[in-house]
Design a protein around this nucleic acid. Structure first.
Length: 845
DNA sequence: GCAAGGTC
C-alpha cells in the first residue's frame, strides 16, 4: 500500500479525487478522514501535528532563571495525538509513502515532521511531491515524477521555531517575573508581536508629540453663463518660492488679504484649460492581505474577514484564503470560470458582459509564489439562501474581485481649469468617467465624478460665494487593522496566515484597545523597556536577519546549529544588560500597570482610586489605601473596564469605558453614576410576577403561601445599569434588564398578557423616533431568543450553514452547545468534527 | 502558563 500525506484534510480529499479519477472512498479512523482507492491511502494532517517545547524541568517559571532558557534544549511533542496515531498506524501498513504537503518552507517542515513520524514506525521509502495548485494537471505531473524531501529547507524552518521559542519564552518570563505579573496577565514579547506593537506605539508617540499649525484655505464658486446649476467649486492657490503650487495659507493676514480680493471680484478669467485622458487599471487578484484590506473597507475586522473566508473555503465556494500569490496559475481558465457564472442569477449579467470582450487577459500582481493560487471563487456557486448576510457580502466581494481582474481598464477624462480673479489664482479639477471598465463589475472602489464644465481660455466666468476656511494640521492617523497588516507585510514580519492573529493577540494581551487599535499604557511601557534593554525583540531587523540565516541554511551555507547557537549567544548578551537593570525594569513596568488602572483621588482619604477585581472575578473601584480605607464604587457587570483620559471635573476622576466588543460603552465617572442612582426615585409600574398580588404561588392562588405584595419598579443602580426589579429586593430578586441610555417613559398602554405598561425609550427630549420597547417582560423574552441565535453564529468558524445544521441537531443556544457531547454532535452534523465542537465549547468558556 | 507557525 502507498500512503500519501497532505497538509490538510481538504487537500487530501481533492488529491484523492484527482488521482482516483473520482473513485476514492473515505473512512474515518480515530476522527481522521482516510481516503482510499486501489492500493492507495491518503490522509490529511492539520498543519503542524508536533510542536517544539522545553523539557519539563524548565516548566516552573519561578524555579528557572529565564536566562537558562537561552541554553536549554528543545524537544518535539505531538500536539494532535489522534492524527499522529492514525498516520503511524497507516505507515505500519504501507510499503511506501509520499509527502504532498504545501509547496513552501513551512510545508517542507510539516513534511519532515510527517517523515520522522513515519520513519519511527516503518522502514519504507518516503518521497516528496510539489505542486502549487491542486489541479488535475499539476497533481498528476507531480506524482509522475516524485522528488526527495528538502531537509535543508525544513531545517531552516526548525531554526525559526527554536529561535522564536527561546527568545520569546525567555524574555516573556523575564518581564513577567520582574513586573510581578504571573498567571493570566503575564507580559509577552516575541519576534513578530513586539515589532508590531512598536509600530502602533511609535505612531501613538507621533500623535502625542504632534503640535498643530493653523492654516487657511479659500474657495469660490465659478459659473459659466447664467445657469446656477452649472456652478463648480474652485480653490485658491499661490506659487511658492520654489515654484510649487500651494493651497494652504499659513499666515492669517495673508489669507485675509486674499479673501478680501476674492470678495472684491465678481468674475474670473480662464487662464488655462488642460484636458487629459487617464486609464485606471483593474486591481490585481486577491492575496490574503489585499483581501483583508478590501473586507476592512466593508467594515469587517481582519479576524472576522478571515473567519468568514475560511468558512467559505471549507464549504467549497472559494479557494484557500491564506496565500501570498497575486498571479493566477496557468491552469486557471478565466473564460471557463466566467462562463460558469454567466449561467447564474446574481452575477450572470456581469459575467456575460465580460465574456463579450475580445480576449480575456486577467491582471497579475507583483507577487508570484508557489504556495496557493490567489483567492478566487471556485466553480461551485452557492445560492443566496445558502449563506448568511455577512457570508454573502464577502462571497460577492471575492466574486466581483475575480470579475474585476478579467475586466477592461476604466478611462477618465480630466479637465483642469485655472482662472484669475482680482490677482488671485483659482483652480478646479474635473473628472469624468468615460469608460466604466472594471468599475461596472466592482463597485467597491471610488468612481465619483467631479463636474467642471467645458470652458475656453480667455472666457469670463461669474464668481460667487467666496469663503475662507480656518483649519489646522492634523496628527498622523492611527493605522487600522488592515493598514497594520499591510505594513507588517512590507516590513516582512509575520505571514499571511498569522498577521491578523498577531493583532488579535495584542488585543487579548491588553496591549491595544478599540478599533483602530490604540496602545495601552502597559504597551507603551513594554515597548520602551524593550527598546532600552532588549532592543532586538522590538526590532523588525530580527526577522530580516532570521530570513537571511534561513536562506543560508536552506542552500547549505550554514547549519541549523551554527545559526541557533549564534542566536542563543546574542540572547545571553541581552540578559547581561537586563540583569544590570533588573529593579529599574520591574519598577517601570509596575508603575505603568498601576497608572493604567488609576482613576484619581479617593474622596475619603485622598489616596488613589484603582480599578480592582474581586475574588469572584467582577470589577469594582477600590482605594489604594485598603485596608485602612475601604471606600469602593461599583462598575457595570458587562465588559472589561479601561480607564480613559477624559476626567470628571467635579470629582477629578478619570472616566471608565467598558470594553465589550460591539456593546462597548463609556460608563463615565463612577462616582457621578453612584450619586445619580442615589438621587433617583424608583418608579413602580405593576405587581411582581413572582411575589406580588396574583402571582403564582401566592395565597390568591389558593395554595396557602403568603402574599408578599412585591411590586415591580424601574430602578437605577449605583453601577449605572437600570432594570425593572422587585421592590422587595433582596428578598425577591426578580429582574428584567433595561437599556443603559435614554429617558424611559411609562405609557398608558398595557400589555394584556403581563399586565404591565409598555415603555418607550427616548434619546433626548426632541427624539421624535423613540424606541418602543413595549412590555418589559415581552421585550426580555424576545431579546433572549435573538441572543441565543446570534451567539452561536458569533463563534469562530460557524457560518449560517453550520448554525442551521447545528439547530437541526437541537443545538440552538450556547447552553445547548456547552452541554452537548462532542462525539455525538460530530456524528450527527456532517462536516463538524468532535475537536471543532470542543473548541467552540472552549470559546463559550 | 512562554513564541510563531501551520490548520479550523
Amino acid at each position: 500500500m502507498e500512503l500519501i500525506v497532505t497538509e490538510k484534510d481538504n487537500a487530501a480529499r481533492r488529491i484523492a479525487d484527482i488521482l482516483s479519477d473520482g473513485g476514492a472512498g473515505a473512512d474515518r479512523r480515530n476522527g481522521v478522514n482516510v481516503y482510499r482507492w486501489g492500493d492507495k491511502r491518503c490522509v490529511g494532517l492539520s498543519g503542524h501535528v508536533v510542536g517544539v517545547d522545553f523539557p519539563p524541568e524548565y516548566n516552573d517559571w519561578r524555579d528557572v532563571e529565564p536566562v537558562e532558557l537561552a541554553g536549554a534544549s528543545v524537544v518535539k511533542n505531538a500536539t494532535k495525538e489522534n492524527i499522529v496515531s492514525t498516520l503511524q498506524s497507516l505507515a505500519g501498513e504501507a510499503d511506501s509513502a509520499v509527502i504532498a504537503t504545501d509547496y513552501d518552507r513551512e510545508g517542507e517542515l510539516i513534511g519532515k515532521e510527517a517523515y520522522e513520524l513515519i520513519d519511527a514506525v516503518a522502514d519504507i521509502p518516503i518521497k516528496r511531491v510539489r505542486f502549487s495548485s491542486i489541479t488535475e494537471r499539476e497533481v498528476k505531473n507531480a506524482f509522475a515524477a516524485p522528488d526527495d524531501l528538502d531537509f535543508d529547507l525544513a531545517a531552516a524552518g526548525e531554526a525559526r521555531q527554536i529561535i522564536d521559542l527561546v527568545w520569546g519564552a525567555a524574555l516573556t518570563r523575564y518581564l513577567s517575573l520582574t513586573a510581578g505579573q504571573l498567571g493570566n496577565d503575564f507580559i509577552s514579547v516575541g519576534r513578530v508581536q513586539s515589532p508590531t506593537l512598536k509600530l502602533i506605539v511609535d505612531r501613538e508617540r507621533e500623535i502625542r508629540a504632534f503640535d498643530p499649525d493653523d492654516y487657511w484655505e479659500l474657495f469660490a464658486d465659478l459659473q459659466q453663463g447664467d445657469d446656477e446649476d452649472e456652478r463648480f467649486e474652485a480653490q485658491y492657490f499661490y506659487e511658492g518660492d520654489d515654484g510649487t503650487e500651494n493651497e494652504r495659507v499659513w499666515d492669517e493676514d495673508e489669507a485675509e488679504t486674499a479673501y478680501e480680493k476674492l470678495r472684491g471680484a465678481d468674475a474670473a478669467t480662464v487662464e488655462s484649460v488642460r484636458r487629459r485622458t487617464r486609464t485606471d487599471d483593474p486591481p490585481a487578484p486577491f492575496n490574503t492581505t489585499q483581501y483583508i484590506r478590501a473586507a476592512g473597507s466593508l467594515g469587517y475586522s481582519a479576524q472576522r474577514a478571515m473567519s468568514i473566508a475560511e468558512e467559505l473555503y471549507t464549504t467549497g465556494w472559494i479557494t484557500y484564503p491564506r496565500t501570498d500569490n497575486t498571479v493566477y496559475p496557468e491552469d486557471l481558465d478565466p473564460e471557463e470560470l466566467l462562463a460558469t457564472f454567466a449561467d447564474t442569477g446574481a452575477f450572470g449579467e456581469d459575467a456575460a458582459s465580460l465574456l463579450e470582450q475580445d480576449d480575456i487577459e486577467p491582471t497579475a500582481g507583483d507577487n508570484e509564489t508557489t504556495d496557493h493560487p490567489p483567492i478566487h471563487p471556485t466553480g461551485e456557486i452557492p445560492g443566496r439562501q445558502d449563506l448568511s448576510e455577512d457570508e454573502w457580502e464577502i462571497y460577492e466581494l471575492v466574486v466581483r474581485r475575480f470579475l474585476a481582474t478579467c475586466a477592461e481598464p476604466a478611462t477618465w477624462a480630466h479637465l483642469r481649469v485655472v482662472a484669475a480673479a482680482n490677482d488671485c489664482s483659482l483652480k478646479a479639477n474635473g473628472k469624468r468617467l468615460v469608460e466604466a471598465g472594471y468599475h461596472a463589475v466592482y463597485p467597491y472602489v471610488g468612481s465619483t465624478e467631479n463636474y467642471v464644465p467645458e470652458v475656453e481660455e480667455g472666457e469670463e466666468l461669474g464668481l460667487f460665494d467666496p469663503r475662507m476656511e480656518a483649519k489646522e494640521t492634523q496628527p498622523p492617523r492611527r493605522r487600522g487593522q488592515s493598514r497594520l497588516i499591510e505594513t507588517m507585510e512590507k516590513m516582512g514580519i509575520g505571514t499571511k496566515a498569522t498577521r491578523h492573529e498577531t493583532i488579535q493577540k495584542l488585543y487579548d494581551r491588553g496591549y491595544v484597545e478599540e478599533d483602530p487599535p490604540r496602545p495601552t499604557g502597559l504597551a507603551m511601557a513594554v515597548v520602551e523597556a524593550a527598546e532600552r534593554f532588549a532592543d532586538r525583540i522590538v526590532d523588525e531587523g530580527m526577522t530580516a536577519q532570521l530570513e537571511g540565516d534561513m536562506d543560508a541554511i536552506a542552500n547549505g551555507e550554514k547549519s541549523l546549529e551554527e545559526v541557533t547557537d549564534e542566536s542563543r549567544e546574542m540572547l545571553e548578551a541581552v540578559f547581561e544588560d537586563l540583569h544590570e537593570h533588573r529593579d529599574e525594569v520591574g519598577d517601570f513596568l509596575k508603575e505603568s500597570l498601576k497608572a493604567d488602572r488609576t482613576l484619581g483621588p479617593c474622596p475619603d482619604c485622598g489616596e488613589d482610586l484603582l480599578v480592582r477585581r474581586s475574588r469572584r472575578g467582577s470589577y469594582f473601584v477600590g482605594c489604594d489605601g485598603y485596608p485602612d480605607c475601604t471606600y469602593t464604587l461599583p462598575l457595570p457587570s458587562q465588559g472589561e473596564p479601561t480607564v480613559i483620559d477624559e476626567t470628571c471635573e467635579e470629582h477629578g476622576l478619570r472616566h471608565v469605558k467598558m470594553l465589550a466588543g460591539r456593546s462597548t460603552f463609556v460608563h463615565g465617572c463612577p462616582l457621578c453614576k453612584a450619586d445619580e442612582a442615589d438621587a433617583a426615585e424608583d418608579r413602580v409600574i405593576g405587581a411582581c410576577p413572582e411575589c406580588g398580588d396574583g402571582a403564582a404561588g401566592s395565597a390568591a392562588n389558593g395554595d396557602g403561601e403568603a402574599v408578599e405584595g412585591g411590586e415591580l419598579a424601574i430602578k437605577q443602580l449605583r453601577s449605572g445599569s437600570r432594570l425593572v426589579g422587585c421592590t422587595r429586593y433582596p428578598d425577591c430578586d426578580y429582574s428584567l434588564p433595561l437599556p443603559r441610555r435614554g429617558d424611559i417613559e411609562v405609557t398608558d398602554v398595557r400589555c394584556d398578557e403581563h399586565d404591565l405598561p409598555e415603555l418607550v425609550v427616548r434619546d433626548g427630549e426632541d427624539d421624535d423616533d423613540p424606541w418602543e420597547l413595549g412590555c418589559p417582560i415581552c421585550n426580555y423574552e424576545e431579546y433572549r431568543e435573538r441572543q441565543a441565535a446570534s451567539e452561536i453564529e458569533d463563534l469562530d468558524g460557524v457560518g449560517a450553514k453550520t448554525a442551521e445544521k447545528l439547530a437541526q441537531a437541537g443545538i440552538e443556544s450556547l447552553d445547548d452547545l456547552s452541554g452537548a457531547d462532542p462525539d455525538g454532535v460530530a456524528g450527527e452534523v456532517q462536516g463538524v468534527s468532535a475537536d471543532r465542537v470542543r473548541e467552540w465549547q472552549a470559546q463559550v468558556g
